[in-house]
């Protein structure tokens, strides 16, 4: 009679661990998730149907930059940079959201494996990158014209403005009322970016100019980290529509 050798406790544990490691699908981390989503959906379907929104955002931003340059108020370069830096991001986000709503495909897309919210999150990341690019270009342009401010000052204030706005927009998407998100976003831009120079005038410009680089850098890093966490939440959190046809 054949004798079956009885495995030792170590052998059993080793075998169990092997079965578990082979049988369990490893969890994707955030970066892998973003990359896999992007790779699967592809540039064509992430940006293809919002090409018109991109064109509108680029055109409007360029026009607003020219307008702000033509009618600049002396000695408020930093206030102007701070206020205008999120324009591209705001227009692109609003136009994309508006287009999604108009298509009446929102509900259907929310029942797909990759939801519209996940695509929105990828788009927001890309919009932020494009926003940084625009801010950099704007900073260079401004520093050539406004010779009394350094390129670094203008760039860092522009980046700060963009990040504050990106965080606000993300907050509205995550916690706000979807039906009023457009109004809330525009309202916040007025309150955070336009009201301070109206209330404090040149004092606001001086304040922005006197912010220590270290503080701004730390603020930017913290906000960038919170922004990425928000994007992660947007991708992983289940969303519920706020109304139904009763």
């Amino acid at each position: 009679m054949n004798k079956i050798p009885i495995p030792t406790k170590e052998e059993k544990e080793k075998a169990i661990n092997k079965i578990i490691s082979n049988g369990m699908t490893p969890q994707e981390n955030f970066i892998q998730r973003i990359v896999n989503l992007y790779m699967h959906i592809g540039t064509k379907y992430i940006f293809g149907d919002i090409l018109d929104c991109l064109i509108i955002a680029i055109t409007s931003t360029v026009l607003i930059y020219f307008f702000s340059l033509s009618f600049r108020i002396m000695n408020t370069e930093l206030s102007t940079t701070f206020a205008i830096s999120p324009i591209f991001y705001i227009i692109l986000t609003l136009a994309t959201e508006w287009k999604e709503k108009m298509s009446h495909l929102y509900e259907l897309k929310m029942t797909c494996k990759y939801t519209v919210k996940q695509i929105t999150a990828i788009r927001l990341l890309c919009f932020s990158a494009l926003g940084v690019l625009f801010s950099s270009l704007m900073s260079m342009g401004y520093s050539l014209i406004f010779t009394n401010e350094s390129l670094l000052d203008i760039f860092i204030v522009s980046l700060l403005g963009l990040l504050i706005n990106s965080l606000l927009a993300l907050g509205v998407m995550l916690y706000g009322n979807r039906r009023n998100s457009h109004n809330i976003l525009i309202g916040l831009w007025f309150a955070v970016f336009l009201l301070p120079p109206v209330i404090w005038g040149k004092g606001w410009n001086v304040f922005l100019g006197e912010l220590p680089y270290l503080l701004i850098t730390v603020l930017i890093l913290i906000m960038a980290a919170i922004y990425l966490l928000g994007i992660k939440k947007l991708i992983t959190e289940r969303e519920v529509i706020l109304y139904a046809n009763r």
Binding site: H40, I41, G42, Y45, D49, S103, H104, L105, Y106, E107, L108, K109, T111, C112, K113, Y114, T115, I119, N245
Partner: peptide, 30 residues
Amino acid sequence: RDIIGYLPQDFGYYKNYSPKQFLNYLGTLK
């Protein structure tokens, strides 16, 4: 979501898409 198919009451679509393009688009999202 991977095992459900849904046709909503107000079925939206992209007017400039052909059925083939539209199905390819939604198939990718699925």
